[in-house]
Write a protein that binds this DNA or RNA. Structure first.
Lengths: 336, 336
DNA sequence: CTGTTAGCGCTTTCAC
DNA sequence: GTGAAAGCGCTAACAG
């Protein structure tokens, strides 16, 4: 397999225990031996055997990540891969490995978590999405296993989380639409059970009432998922409610669906906005105004939270709010 | 952490060794005890500690995957995430965990492999891409560490690999273009050092000469990478070579670049084809004819090869050729 | 068929 | 400051 601690010890002329101490930067070890041991490790290309370390009671320095597999959202939306990359960057610097798996549904997710936890393979978990009454969250809390999550938890106990200010993001979007002169603005969101949907809906409501505009409940559509099809369904439904001016959606896929319907029905001048800044938005006509949620930064922060909490006894923070960026493109502007 | 083998043994009234034997389906163990042990495991919710198992000389049942981080190809092209999912599906069934990391460049890739190997954390590696004189391949071969790869290796010793028939795929594309009546067809490829580029170029050559068409070397462009910008550069260059009719590219991103240039220069009737079937191709005008390489199946097969070789002494196969699918859309048809 | 025992590589008391 | 020794949970001879 590889060089063991004993071989390093032999070359450096010390005991295995000493090598282990050098490895962990133990304070009471002479500079001289430190140097000697380090050069021995260097020479032999020593890499600690993680299994042994983990067995001996140390953290395996590995994080588990569960990816959803439902829908093709995963592939059309670079959110997850970006988040994974963000996680990877921080994990790398801190010497953590990353384990992943795709799951079909919530039950399977919990199943994976169970395996992760009891296998002794991982020190902590990162959850990339959050539902209402998320079984993963409750499972991890019950097991008292360290984790951090993207998305704000229902009741923040000691939970580590990172999220956008979804309320504010949508508030900003709707105000942007209002600034551009649109008044009768519909809301096309994903499942009502998702916290993001709720927060964004709230932002929508506040933005309108903040400008003294009455909210028409019939202009609020919440789909079964975040797909283009649901977007189309929502768009069609709202177009049936009389003269529309704009659609604030909670996802680019939904927005694409709405745009498609508008095109077909001859309303291609209506404003539409999305969320997530997927590449395709750039190639629509008109180009899609959207919100960049900074998935990589969300991932990085989530990694930061869990790793810091694993490493230090009194971690400095338990959450981060990651800024969103409104990407103003053509689709939100007033067009003839 | 969790239930240990001893606790299971105690409950079942046997020794730890027996439990271990049941775990591994050892033949000479009585049905009765098997049942008893299994129910004990069930009751306690026993999950083997992988670190201990791995330390005791068993395979850690974990695979390492190195993802490229260069360029944003990773995010625009769902190839990798699809391949990862394919891998995950097979790995899951066979009880394998998956480790991943993103790397900046070849050097870092090798660095990761080194860590993977010597950490004792992984039993095998899957490489998702292959360059010419790939340092990862040579590194793994030298270390005699089990791996499988997507892409055909330079010299297939015992290497496990899976690939499309890239020659045939491009051969098919070019014949399709010829069938549609195009004659003066340019080639816009990625870096010449990649095997895929070579194979596809060969397919291009063969298809033309097979129809008795002279190959103009000046119509062959090979870019620095697979980006849209390089595609545009290639497109511009070829448009300077006189009247073109079609462009066979080796990647959708390249194709998008070519289409953009054609549009700008007033040649939007020229045919263009891509590779990889990225979602954006559907939303181009005209919609992009492309080749689906079945990334998920490539991944699944790669996992199959490495896991099978790890599990059995005489694995049945050392490679798979995964079929490609020509997706005929508007961009390859003759337009006024 | 099943139990006993040694040992995988590392960390961690406990001595010195 | 450093070494010796025990032990983490599991597997694999070796006995019986």
């Amino acid at each position: 397999m590889g060089i063991t601690i004993k071989e390093v010890a032999a070359l450096a002329g010390v005991s295995a225990a000493t090598v282990s101490r050098v490895l962990h930067n133990n304070s009471r070890i002479s500079e001289k031996t430190k140097v000697r041991v380090r050069s021995a490790m260097e020479q032999l290309g020593y890499v600690p055997n993680i299994a042994a370390r983990s067995l001996a009671g140390k953290s395996p320095r590995t994080l588990g990540i569960v990816l959803p597999n439902n829908s093709d959202e995963l592939f059309k939306n670079p959110f997850f891969i970006n988040a994974m990359r963000g996680i990877s960057i921080y994990a790398q610097v801190h010497g953590y490995f990353l384990l992943y798996s795709f799951s079909q549904d919530e039950e399977e997710e919990v199943h994976f978590l169970d395996k992760y936890i009891h296998s002794g393979w991982v020190a902590g978990i990162i959850l990339l999405t959050t539902r209402e009454n998320d079984r993963c969250v409750s499972f991890l809390e019950k097991a008292r296993f360290p984790f951090s999550m993207i998305g704000r938890p229902e009741n923040l106990g000691n939970t580590l989380w990172v999220d956008n200010d979804n309320f504010h993001a949508m508030y900003q979007v709707v105000n942007h639409l209002l600034d551009k002169g649109h008044r009768r603005i519909g809301f096309v969101g994903g499942p009502a059970s998702f916290r993001v949907t709720k927060d964004r809906l709230l932002g929508y409501r506040q933005a309108l009432s903040g400008r003294g505009i009455d909210i028409e409940e019939s202009l609020i559509f919440q789909g079964k998922d975040f797909s283009e099809e649901e977007g189309a369904r929502g768009g069609r439904e709202l177009l049936g409610k009389g003269r529309m001016e704009a659609f604030a959606t909670t996802d680019d896929q939904l927005a694409f669906g709405v745009m498609e319907v508008c095109r077909k029905e001859g309303f291609d001048h209506l404003a539409v906005t999305g969320f997530n800044n997927t590449p395709r938005g750039l190639y629509q006509t008109p180009t899609l105004t959207t919100v960049d949620v900074q998935a990589d930064l969300l991932g990085r922060r989530a990694a930061e939270l869990i790793i810091d909490s694993l490493e230090s006894e009194d971690p400095r923070r338990d959450h981060y709010i990651v800024e969103t960026k409104l990407i103003e493109r053509q689709s939100s502007y007033r067009r003839p």
